[in-house]
Amino acid sequence: MNREQEVYARWLDWGTRLALAVLIASFLAYALALFDPLLPPQELPKLWAFPVDHYIAASGAPTGWGWLQLLHKSDYLIFVAVAVLGLLTVVGYARIVPILLKQGETWRALIAVLQVIVLLAAALY
């Protein structure tokens, strides 16, 4: 197996395990009402049938990275798991760039860098 493939697999493996553990723990905290949510679950049926813009306007839920300020709310703790899932590929690709350069694979290193830029642009849009 190629060295970069081995390293990429290792990062995905551990990152996915971490994300799933956080997802399950945070959902249990939310479902068992271990601490307060921003929006009580019983309020959701009034809003979940509407488009996202309507939901945001009516609930005051954050957009972008605003969820980072609401990590003390049980419904937003789950976003940590989602963000880990979303950043795994970025971290994995960034990690293999020096390996590809060391192997003299400049074109593939360039593709990896461009991929990181695309994913970060999507994350920060």
Partner: peptide, 15 residues
């Protein structure tokens, strides 16, 4: 990421 940033991630649906 686009859906997440728009606020379209509902924990009660996703988890």
């Amino acid at each position: 990421w686009i859906y997440l940033n728009r606020g379209a991630v509902l924990p009660i649906v996703v988890a």
